[in-house]
Every structure is written in structure tokens, then in C-alpha cells.
């Protein structure tokens, strides 16, 4: 691990914990693109998780709310995540693993390349609605 990678580890780990502490979300997670040739995007950090299943998930561009964030670089949110099944376009694996009912996801942009580098996702299990305001609140944490 290089020095810059190690500092990013601390940074995102801290970010996840900070959002979890300050807001009412039941799960907060960050997915990042790996720098290896496969360039897989996986969930690296989570707070409030029920299990470790999320670590196995590889995000698919365009699939589910996190995938849509990666494809478009724009925030997404959804209140009915629990109705989607494997093979549905809006099926979001982490929502199923973590029994989320609603979640919002915002892109993490790399300042150097101005590309989507990852996703910050936060959600609820108790049916509490998410909205544009949730997205705005989340985006605040990513401001430089």
C-alpha cells in the first residue's frame, strides 16, 4: 500500500463513520474503483452493516442505484429497494444483503481525472423515505 492509498483508506473510513454518527442512516458505505487492471468497483468501507456479504459484491455499471451513479456520475435515490429482485434493472445487491428499504447514492469524483471514482451510499431499513434532501446532505460530506 502506498502512502497516498493509505491516506485515502483513512479518509474514506473516517468519512463513513462521520456520516453514520452525524445522520440517522442505518447503513453508510463507500465503494471505490480498484487501480488494478480489472478496475472492479467494490464496497470497501461500511458502518452499520449487518454482515460482511457486501465485501463480495462487484458493482455493475448501470445496474441498481449505485451502478447508475457510476454510469451517469449523477446522484440517485430510491424508496422501494426491497421490491427489486435479482435480474431487475434496479436490483441493488447491497440493498438486498443489508435489507435496505430506501437509499441514496452520490458519486465520488476523482479530482485528478474528473471521473467517477466511487460511490457514497446511505440508507434505511425501516422504510424511512429518502429524497433530494438526503442527496444534498450526503453531497455536503464530499465537498473538498
Amino acid at each position: 500500500m502506498t502512502l497516498s492509498e493509505s491516506s485515502s483508506v483513512n479518509h474514506y473510513n473516517e468519512l463513513v463513520n462521520q456520516v453514520y454518527r452525524n445522520e440517522l442512516f442505518e447503513l453508510v458505505a463507500v465503494a471505490l474503483q480498484s487501480q488494478t487492471a480489472a478496475r472492479q468497483i467494490k464496497w470497501r468501507y461500511a458502518a452499520g452493516n449487518q454482515n460482511e456479504k457486501f465485501r463480495k459484491i462487484v458493482l455493475r455499471s448501470g445496474m441498481g442505484i449505485a451502478g447508475l451513479v457510476i454510469r451517469t456520475g449523477k446522484p440517485f435515490w430510491c424508496d422501494r429497494l426491497n421490491v427489486y429482485q435479482l435480474r431487475d434493472a434496479m436490483y441493488t445487491p447491497i440493498a438486498k444483503c443489508e435489507s435496505l428499504t430506501g437509499a441514496a447514492a452520490v458519486p465520488i469524483m476523482s479530482p485528478a481525472t474528473r471521473l467517477v471514482d466511487g460511490v457514497l451510499l446511505a440508507g434505511f431499513r425501516n422504510g424511512q423515505p429518502v429524497s433530494n434532501k438526503t442527496v444534498q446532505a450526503l453531497s455536503q460530506y464530499l465537498l473538498p
Partner: peptide, 8 residues
């Protein structure tokens, strides 16, 4: 399917 679901 494991990557797509998180299930081992």
C-alpha cells in the same frame, strides 16, 4: 452470481 449478490 457471487459478485452480483454478495452471497458465498
Amino acid at each position: 452470481l457471487e459478485e452480483n449478490s454478495g452471497i458465498t
